[in-house]
Amino acid sequence: MKEPADRLPWHEQWGDWLYPLGTIVFLVIAWELFVRLLKIPSYLVPRPYDVLLVLVDRHAEIFAHALVTAQEVALGYLLGVAVAVPCAILICWSRLLERSLMPLIVYTQTFPKSAIAPLFLIWFGYGILPKVVIAFLIGFFPMLIAMITGLRAVEPDAVDMIRSMSASKLQTFTKVRIPYSLPFFFSGAKVAATLSIVGALVGEFIGAEQGLGYLLIRANASLDTEFLFAILIPLVVLGRLFFSFVGLVERYVIGWHLAAREGAQGS
C-alpha cells in the first residue's frame, strides 16, 4: 500500500485541470455581471447564458456545419502531411534540390498564404475543395520546414556512426536521419494542426455554402451576435480535439523521445 504522504493532495493531483477551470468559471461570471450591470445590448455582447441557450437550441445545425469544416481541415491536413514529409526527405536527399529550393521555401514562409485563397475559389469553385487546398497550403509549410530542420539537425557523429557500418544513403535516412527528425516534425505538425483550421475558415469566409466559417458570416450579416458567439464554442472544441489527436499520434510514434525527455527531467 502506498504511504499517504506519497500521494499528492487532491487539489494538486487535479491541479492541471482545476486551476484553469477556475479561471474560466471566474471569467464567465465576470462577463455575465459585466453585461448585466453595464446594460450592454445583446447585439454587442450577449450574456453567456443566452449564448448557451442558442447553442443548445441550434445544436443540430451547428453540428452539421462543424462536420463539414472538420472534414475540410482533416483532408487538408492529411494532404499536408502526405506531401510535406516526402518533400522534406527529397530536399535533404539531394544537395542540388536543397540548394535550389531551400532559400525559396524559407522565403515563402513570410508570404501570407491566405492572400491566394480568392484565387482558389476561382479555380476550384464553391465546394469543399478550395477549403481543403487552403487548409493544406497553410499547414504544409510549417510541417515541411520542421521536417527539414529535423533532418538537418541530426548529430554529425550519428551519421558518421552509421556510415562507418558501410550504410547506404537510404539506410542513413531510414535508420538515423528520419527518426531523428520526427520530434521536430511533430512540433511543426502541432502548429499546422491549428493553422489548417484557420485555412479552412478563411476559405469559408470567402465563399461557401456550408461550414462554421459560412455560419459565422451569415450570423454576422444578420447581426445575430448570440449565434456568432455560439459558433465559437464548437470551433474551440474542434481545435482542441484536433490538437490532442496529433498529440496522441506523437505519443504513439515518438514515445521514446518523450520518455527520454521526461526521464532526463526526472533525474
Binding site: 548529430e155 557523429d157 550519428a158 558518421d160 556512426m161 552509421i162 562507418s164 557500418m165 558501410s166 550504410a167 539506410q171 535508420k175 538515423v176 527518426p179 515518438i254 521514446w256 523521445h257 527520454a260
Partner: peptide
C-alpha cells in the same frame, strides 16, 4: 568498428537493438 566521443546510441532502440544495428546495416 568505430567508437565516437559521444555514445551516439539511437534513442528509440534498446541497447541490444543499438548493438545489433551494426549487423542489420551490414
Amino acid at each position: 568498428g568505430v567508437v565516437f566521443q559521444s555514445p551516439v546510441l539511437l534513442a528509440w532502440r534498446t541497447i541490444l537493438e543499438n548493438i545489433l544495428l551494426q549487423i542489420e546495416v551490414r
